[in-house]
Amino acid sequence: MRVGLFVTCLVDLMRPRIGFAALELLESAGCEVVVPASQTCCGQPGYNSGDRASAQALARKVLGEFKDCDYVVIPSGSCSGMIKAHYPELLSDVPQARADVEWLIARTWELTDFLVNVLRIEQVPGTFQGTVTYHDSCSGLREMGVKSQPRALLAKVPGLVLEEMSTPEQCCGFGGTFSVKFGDISARICDQKCDDVQSTGTDAVVLGDLGCMLNIEGRMRRRGDVRTRVLHVAEVLAGTTGEEG
C-alpha cells in the first residue's frame, strides 16, 4: 500500500525527527511511503484567521499533492482534522474541487489512528524506560476521534508506563494564532496543563500535535521545569526520543 506522508509545516521546520519517526513507523509496518516534495501547509492558519482565500489556495494545492496515494497519513490531529472536518466547508464554493475533496478526506488519517485501525500493528519499534502521561490534543480528540489509539500503541512500548493526568482532554491553550493574539491568556491556560502534567510526577508528557508540544514545553521551561520531557507520540513509538533534531 502506498502511503503519502504529510509531515506538516511545523514538523518540517521545527522537529524533523518527528517526521522521520512517522516514516519509520509506516515503513516498518510494510508501507511504501512517499513524501511529496511540494508539500507545505494545510491552510489552517489562514482558515482560522478568517483569510478564506489563502486557506482555499493552500487546500487546493494539498488536493493535488497526494493523487497517487492510497492513504494520506499525518502526524497531527490538527492538520488531519483541518482536511477531514473543514475542507468540505472551506471548498464548498469551489464545485470543481468537490470530487477531489471527497477523495482526499476518505483517505486522510491521523497517524496513530492509521496505525491502529488500518495497519492494525501488533508491535512498535520503540522502547522507553519511564513513566509518561498523555495529553489529548483538541482537534485530534474532537475532530478525529483520537483517544484510545495512542494509548493502545503506547501500551505496546516495552518499559513504558502510562499514568493519566486528571484532565487530559483539557485544552493546553495553544489555539494557533490565539497563542500570540492573547499570549497572556494562553499562558495561563497552559499553566493548568503544566500543573496537571507535573502532578502526575511522570518523566514525560506525550502528545500528538506539535502546536501543543511547543506551547507546553515552552511554558514548562519558562516555569523552570527542565526535567519533564515533552514528546511526540511518533518518536516514542519509533524509539527515537534520544535523537537530535
Binding site: 514538523v11 521545527m14 524533523p16 522521520f20 500570540v180 499570549g183 497572556d184 497552559c190 514545553e217 515552552g218
Partner: peptide
Amino acid sequence: GGAGAWTAQRDMPAPAGRTFRELYA
C-alpha cells in the same frame, strides 16, 4: 514583533536547524 507575545511568558523551543525536507532529500 508580534511573536513577542509568545515569549513574554513562554520559551519558544528552537527549531532543530535543518528542515525535514532538507534532511529527507
